[in-house]
Structures are given as structure tokens and as C-alpha cells.
Amino acid sequence: MLNGFDEVFIMDGNGPYVWSCLVIFILILVLNIFTALKRKNKILKSLKKL
């Protein structure tokens, strides 16, 4: 198990590569959810007008 700041974030020097992948992954998930919710709101607004 990884313990301490250096071990977790820096790892063996390749930590930034690993963490940047995790950040991109989270960004993609958030973007997909955000797009879906934004579209839902838009549809609900158009339904109100009907």
C-alpha cells in the first residue's frame, strides 16, 4: 500500500503521469453527465412551451 504524500502523489517519479490520467478520466465522466443533464433541462423547457 502507498503511504504518505510523496509515495501517493509522486510515486516513483511517475506519479504525475498516473494522476493526469485520473484527472482526464474524471473530466470525461463529468462532461458526459453534465451534457446529459444540460440536454434534459433544455428538453424540459421546450416541453413547458408545448
Partner: peptide, 27 residues
């Protein structure tokens, strides 16, 4: 992800960079 990033052992050849596998392979 928590298991892969913090608990999984370090790879003897690639070191910790192999942890990208836990995102790369499933995607």
C-alpha cells in the same frame, strides 16, 4: 480505482506508472 491506485503492489518492471492500466484497459 482506490484499490488499483493505492493498494495494488508496484510492478517490478514498470514501477508505479503501470497504475494507468486501471483506467486505460477498461476504457
Amino acid at each position: 480505482l482506490y484499490w488499483g491506485m493505492f493498494y495494488a503492489p508496484t510492478d517490478y518492471k514498470q514501477g508505479d506508472v503501470y497504475r494507468i492500466l486501471f483506467i486505460h484497459v477498461p476504457s
